[in-house]
């Protein structure tokens, strides 16, 4: 049953990639190819591109990424817990309550610190 069920999934990933590659190849075969220096420059609404696009970016994006990892891990912990919840009962509720409680404290802290502000 089990591992065999994953074979179609791997195949599907392959087929999807092939569809993508086929589309791109078809496009490059059928389309014209007349490059010139203006066409190949980065698009900036008609302006000359004036500096490299690899620029400094707002640290808040980085912060969001870190917070995301914490919360996503938390969800990963919740998945198995929620499957067996009826077997672990109130003990499970108490343990997860403690775990979630700690995370909520952290969440309140980052909220009060202004990590979630975007002004």
């Amino acid at each position: 049953m089990d591992l065999q069920q994953y074979l179609p999934i791997a195949l599907f990933l392959g087929v999807a990639t092939v569809i993508g590659i086929a589309l791109l190849t078809l496009g490059s075969l059928l389309g014209p190819r007349k490059p010139d220096s203006e066409k190949l420059s980065p698009y900036e609404c008609g302006f000359e591109a004036f500096e490299d696009a690899r620029m400094k970016f707002d640290v808040r994006y980085y912060l969001i990424a870190i917070l995301f990892i914490i919360f996503d891990l938390e969800i990963a912990f919740l998945f198995p817990w929620s499957v067996v919840l009826d077997q672990i009962g109130w003990h499970g509720i108490a343990s997860m309550g403690l775990f979630l409680g700690l995370l909520v404290v952290g969440f309140v802290y980052e909220w009060k610190k202004g990590a979630l502000e975007w002004e």
């Binding site: 698009y43 994006y61 995301f68 919360f71 969800i75």
Partner: peptide, 24 residues
């Protein structure tokens, strides 16, 4: 390697991961 593309990618990536938590 274009500014619009880069800004757009940062914005949508942050947005996608934020809403993924609520979805999860």
């Amino acid at each position: 390697n274009s500014k619009y593309a880069f800004l757009g990618a940062m914005r949508s990536a942050a947005q996608i991961v934020s809403y993924e938590i609520a979805m999860g």
